[in-house]
Design a protein around this nucleic acid. Structure first.
Length: 256
DNA sequence: CGGCTTTGACCGGCGC
DNA sequence: GCGCCGGTCAAAGCCG
């Protein structure tokens, strides 16, 4: 495992997937070797998004033409804003046109230079697998999940439908990356062949069924592997919070 | 008091 | 069929 060149400790936005990170962490470059989270490969559907995305995110930050009132810290938020999938943006604001007018975003769909290949690959995984059971997220599992477990109405679901999963590694002392979303921990399990337990989190948003698993690599405990399952169907709260003053300005300016 | 974490138990999938 | 293992539930406790 190698650190990203330069070993920057900046937070990194993972375009379209993980729009907001505020916890300093070092992304891990070695994308060729998916983390062995467990003895079996239960993450066979995972797409490991590492170097390319982080590089792209970094270049996106540096390429952005930002208004003078934006500090370096805001660059990340702005960069993230350019990469948030349209589906998670609030409907009341024409974000893309606003950002476009401000020079923060190119014509949709947004693609960061250098990212196309990997993002497309990731998107392909999403499309392929989410097609099966997109309804699950919509119907919500808050009730369904319960029924699935304790004896209850276990009728239909024979095979657990696969959902789009994305995993990435960060070198960080913190297990929990602040990705802007709110997570509720619902389980922790000791994993075979690993001294560190795996933690299970679920997005706290009512209609969102995204889950994530967090675990430290057995071979290199300084590396945290975060696996996201599903796609958020709501805005990133912290991102929106961070962007709201900027967007108010943009809205104001767009009137002229 | 609401939201969150902890933790033991339960369940299904899978390999043998 | 059995046992192992990963994933999830849910009660209990903690915390602001």
């Amino acid at each position: 495992m190698e650190n990203l060149e330069g070993g920057d400790n900046e937070a990194h936005a993972l375009p379209g997937l993980f729009p907001y990170f505020s916890v300093p962490s070092t992304p891990v470059l070695d994308a060729a070797a998916p983390p062995s989270l467990s003895s079996d490969d239960s993450n066979q559907h995972s797409t490991f998004v590492t170097a390319a995305l982080q590089q792209a995110a970094a270049s996106a930050c540096s390429n952005l033409q930002l208004p003078p009132q934006l500090g370096p810290g805001d660059q990340l938020a702005a960069a993230a804003a350019t990469t948030v999938p349209p589906m998670i943006l609030p409907p009341m604001v024409d974000w893309s046109s606003l950002l476009q007018q401000a020079g923060l975003m190119g014509p949709p769909p947004v693609m960061i230079p250098g990212l196309q290949q990997h993002a497309a690959a990731a998107a392909a995984v999403q499309l392929d697998e989410s097609g099966e059971n997109d309804g699950e997220a919509a119907s919500g599992s808050s009730g369904g999940g319960k029924e699935k477990a304790k004896g209850g109405g276990r009728s239909g679901n024979k095979k657990k439908a696969s959902r789009p999963r994305f995993a990435f590694q960060t070198r960080s002392a913190n297990d929990i990356l602040d990705d802007g979303y709110r997570w509720r921990k619902y389980g922790q399990k000791a994993v075979k062949n690993s001294a560190h337990p795996r933690s299970y989190y679920r997005c706290t948003h009512h209609t969102c069924n995204v889950k994530k698993q967090v675990q430290r690599l057995a071979k290199d405990t300084s590396i945290v592997v975060t696996t996201y399952e599903g796609v958020h169907n709501h805005p990133c709260e912290k991102l929106m919070e961070a962007l709201s003053p900027i967007l108010k300005q943009l809205q104001f300016l767009s009137q002229f």
